[in-house]
Design a binder for these strands. Structure first.
Length: 209
DNA sequence: TAGTTGATCGTCT
DNA sequence: GACGATCAACTAA
């Protein structure tokens, strides 16, 4: 968790990246950088954990039962942020995937703080460990100033985007079932970077013989 | 360390 | 009227 990153060497991820099947986009987001500009601050986090939510095929998806006012962004142009409010107090952020008109999104579950750490500490509380600043979907929204106003934001703009280094070797990836859902529990649509301390929960340890 | 619980309100049935 | 893609604080052991 260094507070420096050679931003010049990174390229913004373009729309065709998002306009693909959700299960392809999700694992490829790992190791890329979430870049947020707000209130004169530059915030960067390395994406270390995501979950794929498909549309009408996925009972755990907000879009399973079709389009509503809340989930409308999921049905729109790929490469936008779908932000929703939950549990009466938290926000979670997704990136919209699939072609325009088809619902799909990737939930950002955890990022590793890279830049703007002091700002994130102030938002999250001084007693919070650095590795806990953004190791959960609602925590990262708090740290990165993501709320209702950011719903529908274009990821190709300046306020919010994803950047990737060229020629970066893909990180070692783990995969598991999704967290906090009661349906579609069999689908292993959670992807994370193995052994990264900022992943929200360690993988279930399977007893070995 | 693991498991339980209260907080709090928008969204959908 | 029920519940949720969560979190932090608490309890027990």
């Amino acid at each position: 968790m260094s507070d420096a990153l050679p931003l010049k060497r990174l390229r913004k991820v373009r729309r065709p990246f998002y306009a693909r099947p959700t299960l392809q986009v999700a694992p490829e987001l790992l190791g890329k950088y979430l870049v947020r500009r707000t209130r004169g601050h530059l915030l960067i986090g390395r994406i270390v954990e995501v979950e794929a939510y498909r549309g009408h095929l996925d009972p755990a998806s907000h879009a399973y039962r079709g389009r509503t006012q809340r989930n409308a962004v999921m049905f729109g142009e790929p490469g936008h942020a779908y932000v929703y409010f939950t549990y009466g107090m938290h926000f979670c952020m997704n990136f919209v995937t699939e072609r325009d008109g088809v619902a799909g999104a990737v939930l950002l579950r955890a990022v590793e703080p890279i830049r703007g750490i002091e700002f994130m500490r102030r938002r999250r509380g001084s007693h919070v460990n650095d590795k806990d600043l953004s190791n959960g979907p609602a925590k990262l929204c708090e740290a990165f100033v993501i709320a209702r106003e950011q719903n529908g934001l274009d990821l190709l703009g300046n306020e919010l985007c994803v950047m990737a280094g060229d020629g970066q070797s893909p990180p070692t990836m783990g995969r598991s079932t999704r967290i906090g859902i009661r349906v579609a529990n069999d689908k292993r649509w959670r992807f994370y970077i193995k052994r990264n301390p900022c992943v929200s929960r360690p993988p279930k340890v399977r007893p070995h013989r």
